[in-house]
Design a protein around this nucleic acid. Structure first.
Lengths: 228, 228
DNA sequence: GATTTTCAAGAGCACCGCTCTCGGTTATGG
DNA sequence: CCATAACCGAGAGCGGTGCTCTTGAAAATC
């Protein structure tokens, strides 16, 4: 079996990321070990540096594939869903939770505490990292245009804050005013908190028989406070 | 200067935790190094094991002092505050955020992604770890008794979930029904999400000029959805 | 076919948690 | 008061980590 050099290169590149994900889910991001990956590939430790610049570089690759997979899952779920924007919003958030529960280590890498010495390079990670929030803003925008949003009250105080909120709406091309974006932020914030608590086992394991039920109950509460 | 053995023991015990906290804020929990602490104490690496069973044991001690310090800060803030329960609730949540912003590494240790190989022993950490949520439930309980809570609508669906929620109210001695506890949970969840996003830099550094303002604006929104 | 590029291996450096032994100091109790 | 017991710090050592550099062989290119 003769594999050309380019083929083998590509193959190993992929295997390394795959094994990285396996290790991620076993030992966590902070304990990710290039040497362990090399061992599983029957390579000597130094050889793996032909394919990965450094441990941080591998971490970045893992961040990107995780963001993309999560974004894919959320986008696919709303593409499959029908009904009013609020219902599809709920679908998207449920998809977010499901992916996180299925991939706790990846979720921790994306939204958990930062890995000590590591800083994700924004120029490579922000694009895939904003897919989910983009979906949320798009659906809220649809709801606003349908007139089923009740958020518009007095705009949040503070001109610099309002400017930042408007900048977000503009960046994502959402037809939302300041109060709407603030509400979206609250929703996003709550979602991260809820999923984080569940995935990181913030309540003890014994407090809730069905974590999905408490997520669902909280979700309808949050959405009720939003629409009308 | 002759220090008795017991004195020196106690002193070193304390210094180790102190240096552990310093290191925590410098390199993060996952990279906490007993050897570095030993170096700073002018001790050989093995000597520090006379005072700390293992790295995990030190981590547990750090978790406990962090929980206690955070609980202390929150409790003190509501003790200083006056006014209706809702106002003191806001005060407590602001104190939570302030402590977290001042102690990002400790916050990460308590509420961030778990440290890879480490599991906090519940019998030592749950007591200090529930002080904050206890304050929240107590204040909400006061608000409920004052009749300024609007959460009571249809109880959340699912009998097992309701039983869990009632169990929480009972455990903390709160006079709250199922819908109230669910609302409290939502508040807590949002708080963790908001603070986590800010401390872990979930938005880029450039998106918000004043993170405190977005916290405050979201806070009044969340509280408005709660009271009446 | 000669040359250039790519590759895996190996040795090595500095770091980590942790264990064990050994000699010296302190506290205790007969 | 002195012998014994408890405690302490140093040192060596094991296996693990990320990462660098050199070396010889293999593949691709010219």
């Amino acid at each position: 079996m003769t594999t050309s050099r380019a083929e083998r290169r590509q193959q190993l590149d992929q295997q390394i990321v795959e094994l990285g994900r396996m290790q991620l889910s076993k030992v966590g991001a902070a304990a990710l070990s290039l040497r362990a990956i090399a061992r599983e590939l029957n390579l000597v430790s130094s050889a793996v540096y032909r394919y990965v610049d450094s441990r941080d570089e591998l971490l970045t690759r893992l961040v990107i594939v995780a963001y993309d997979e999560l974004g894919e899952a959320v986008e696919a779920s709303v593409a499959r869903a029908s009904g009013p924007p609020e219902a599809r919003l709920a679908t998207a958030m449920r998809a977010f939770r499901l992916w996180a529960v299925d991939h706790p280590a990846e979720f921790a890498l994306l939204y958990g505490s930062p890995v000590p010495g590591y800083q994700a390079p924004p120029e490579r990670t922000t694009a895939p990292g904003t897919r989910v929030i983009a979906v949320l803003l798009r659906l809220l925008s649809e709801a606003a245009q349908a007139g089923t949003l009740r958020t518009s009250g007095p705009p949040p105080p503070g001109e610099p804050l309002c400017a930042d909120l408007r900048a977000i709406a503009a960046e994502f091309g959402a037809a939302l005013d300041e109060a709407d974006v603030l509400a979206a932020l609250g929703l996003w914030t709550w979602l991260l908190g809820a999923v984080g608590q569940e995935v990181f086992d913030g309540y003890g394991q014994a407090t809730f028989a069905d974590p999905g039920a408490v997520f669902e109950a909280q979700l309808v509460r949050q959405l009720a406070a939003l629409g009308r």
